[in-house]
């Protein structure tokens, strides 16, 4: 029994110190070393809400080109933003790379972001006072079956999808962050009353509620439904897996909440090394990185210097609703409450 205790103690010491030694020998897993002490010593700590699959290769390229060692903590954008806010002045993070503008807006609001050089990026996708800058964009679209729907029959505003002719033909992913951002945009541009009426109209049309945007596109392809409310790139992603996909994107008219263009973006923490952070921002807005987004993730480049993926209308044609992207986060609790209340959430 005493031996068992001793064994446990030894195991504990081995685990804790053994892993601690690991930290020193492999620079990529350093933790304590990423605290305030090493700002500006050739390493850059990034909190990334974008997944490793998506941006890992791009950050590797940056590391090679700049000679700056990159350490990335991957997580959910909103949770990382909350973490940065709690860390405050002691944050080891130097750059925040977010999946959406809402989380960046929140960190900016907390006064934790320094100014960045937004270069050629349109003001629509830059935070107030240049506290953050969009790096790639995604448009809301109506995906439709090219077999069962004629393009000319599709309305040019999202509000018309409450018409009875669409009953039983729509799919959407109500718990998805991108759907919620779109409903927030509708509330901010058209008001709560009209948004509630729209949600109720959609609900009355008996929509198929799915978990994710790719499921929506799959349901259209399989014939389960005819149209779906998604982001533009899901059709292209699925096309890569399923040749001969019978689904296409329909873009709504300018100013319509259904034509919202949301962005992933980047902000530099005040606590970080300004020079190194700026180099990463510049790199993410470079032609090389912008082309990466267009080719690998089928997103919109935002600098106007790189061509969008084939078949996408130019970004200048997509004038979404007149709202500040940074405000979408703040609108969220009320939005989810509204979605739930109408009965689309549960």
């Amino acid at each position: 029994m005493t031996r068992l205790l001793a064994l446990l103690a030894v195991l504990l010491v081995v685990v804790l110190t053994g892993c601690g030694t690991d930290d020193k020998s492999s620079p990529s897993s350093g933790a304590a070393s990423s605290s305030a002490s090493d700002k500006g010593d050739g390493t850059l700590t990034i909190y990334s809400g974008r997944s490793e699959d998506l941006v890992g290769p791009l950050l590797d390229t940056f590391e090679k080109q700049s000679g700056i060692e990159v350490k990335v903590r991957y997580g959910e954008s909103a949770e990382l933003a909350a973490t940065i806010a709690e860390e405050g002045e002691n944050s080891p993070a130097e750059v925040f790379f977010s999946q959406d503008a809402g989380a960046l807006g929140a960190v900016a609001e907390a006064g934790l972001l320094a100014q960045v050089n937004s270069g050629q990026v349109d003001r629509r996708w830059v935070g107030a006072d240049e506290r953050w800058v969009g790096t790639s964009g995604r448009a809301r679209v109506v995906a439709y079956s090219t077999e069962r729907v004629k393009k000319t029959d599709l309305p040019d505003t999202i509000f018309d999808f409450t018409q009875p002719e669409w009953k039983g033909r729509i799919a959407l992913a109500p718990t998805n962050a991108s759907f919620q951002a779109f409903v927030s945009a509708m509330r901010l541009s058209a008001g709560d009353k009209r948004t509630q009426a729209w949600l109720e109209g959609i609900k009355a049309n008996d929509p198929t509620l799915l978990d994710g945007n790719s499921d929506v596109v799959k349901a259209i392809n399989s014939g389960e439904v005819d149209v779906g409310l998604v982001n533009h790139y899901y059709v292209y992603e699925l096309e890569a897996e399923t040749p001969g996909l019978k689904v296409a994107n329909h873009f709504l008219k300018s100013g319509d909440p259904g034509s919202l263009v949301n962005v992933a973006g980047v902000g530099a923490l005040k606590t970080g090394d300004a020079g190194e952070s700026a180099r990463l921002v510049t790199f993410l807005l470079s032609d090389e990185a912008q082309a990466y987004f267009a080719e690998k993730t089928f997103e919109y480049p935002l600098t106007g210097l790189t061509q969008p993926p084939d078949r996408l209308p130019p970004l200048t044609d997509l004038q979404g609703p007149a709202i500040e992207l940074g405000e979408l986060g703040e609108a969220l609790p009320e939005t989810t409450r509204l979605i739930d209340e109408v009965g689309l959430g549960a």
Partner: peptide
């Protein structure tokens, strides 16, 4: 959250996702 059941934890998460105010 997967089952879309509106429990207290779900409300807490939605609040954290906005972050403008962590008090609620």
């Amino acid at each position: 959250s997967l089952m879309r059941f509106d429990a207290l934890t779900r409300a807490i998460f939605t609040q954290y996702r906005t972050l403008f105010d962590r008090t609620p």
